[in-house]
Design a protein around this nucleic acid. Structure first.
Lengths: 207, 207
DNA sequence: GGCACAATACCGACCGGTTGGTATGTGAGT
DNA sequence: ACTCACATACCAACCGGTCGGTATTGTGCC
């Protein structure tokens, strides 16, 4: 088990620098195409440091997924959409927030763990499990608001809060793929608009 | 022109065998993790044959995407959902068909070009373009039915037939990722159910 | 039809560079 | 004296790609 470095130059310890480089490089090149050498060069670290902190490349992949889960859950915990009083408003504001995040460089807003899952689901079960934990752990944070919205609107749906939360993630992951295919963020934003429209229709009481 | 290989000549010429092996291996391992040697071994072909048919590995990637576009468009052209008289019924039956296809081994029903796009969008523009052509070419086949459904239902939506067709593909791509994360086909089918519910709500006239 | 011949389809040994990974060393903090 | 964080040097296996060669084919001429 690696632990935080005591002596820390301005740029942070080698482990987190490697994790940040992994986050950036894997998002733009994929896991397999990112070599240990690439990682070390980007992090400004030698191979010795790499294999000091991680048993092998797969362990780095797992750690990168865990690091991703930690940093993103912090991002969403501090996001402004929680400020709304109504649970449905919170959920819709979450979707708006996700749309707003889609901006600029592809490798800046796409999902590390979704990208890795595609590549490694068959060959690296340990990484796959860490990615799944990140995705479904995040989806679970949406469930209370959806549940409360169902109650407050007095609807009796034939779908579960869990499945809608997961569907939200599916749309986002799919939107990222299409954005990568076109190189255009608008493609992704259009799908998020459809998702928001869906949620609004689901909670419309008169039908 | 094509000629069966010496060893196992019953399986057709080397080029299509390499394309089929590429389809299978890349779907389960990804593009970068699939080496030329892997491809040749799986196809029962030598490296000489590989580089006779393809200038380099990237060219194989492009050809695999084109091959995918051809074979899938044939599959969908012959699918039963076209038999419905009503255009909205056809579109809904398409979604049912996509759900029905989700069955068995992950590498059997997931999308080759979606998988490749994730990995190579930044580093192999030629492959990315071929993948995009496959995805958006398929989406375009749905537009006439959506357009006709809008007309027949007399609705005036604030979304375009094109954007809904593309959203359909986004949901499917996202569903594949989540299925890979869980190893469970139900995760994907749940999202397709949400997609169908969305389309039904969109075309409900009384609201 | 038979034959020469040029394309084409395929083979497999080989190359230089890169890969993930290891063994060992060093130097600062405790 | 000892641990920990990192560096250097190195390796065997594998990578994408090359190349000289052989087998099989369609074709034009007789």
């Amino acid at each position: 088990m690696p632990r935080p470095t005591k002596l820390t130059p301005e740029h942070g310890d080698a482990r987190t620098r490697l994790l940040q480089s992994a986050r950036d490089l894997i998002r733009s090149q994929g896991y397999a195409a990112t070599s240990v050498g690439d990682l070390c060069r980007a992090a400004g670290v030698t191979k010795g440091a790499f294999f000091h902190h991680f048993e092998n490349k797969e362990a780095l992949g797992v750690a990168a997924a865990v690091y991703w889960a930690e940093t993103t859950s912090e991002l969403f915990a501090n996001a402004p959409y929680h400020r709304h009083d109504d649970p449905l408003d919170r959920f819709l504001a979450y979707i708006d927030f996700r749309k707003q995040i889609i901006d600029g460089d592809l490798a800046r807003f796409t999902c590390l763990v979704g990208t890795m899952t595609q590549e490694i689901y068959g060959s690296h079960p340990a990484i796959r499990d860490a990615c799944a934990a990140s995705i479904f752990g995040h989806a679970a944070t949406l469930e209370p608001d959806i549940e409360a919205a169902i109650a407050s609107r007095g609807i009796t749906p034939d779908w579960s809060a869990e499945s809608l939360a997961i569907h939200t993630q599916a749309v986002l992951q799919g939107a990222f793929i299409l954005a990568k295919a076109t190189g255009n963020t608008e493609t992704a934003k259009d799908s998020v608009d459809h998702l928001k429209r869906y949620v609004e229709l689901l909670f419309k009481t008169n039908h």
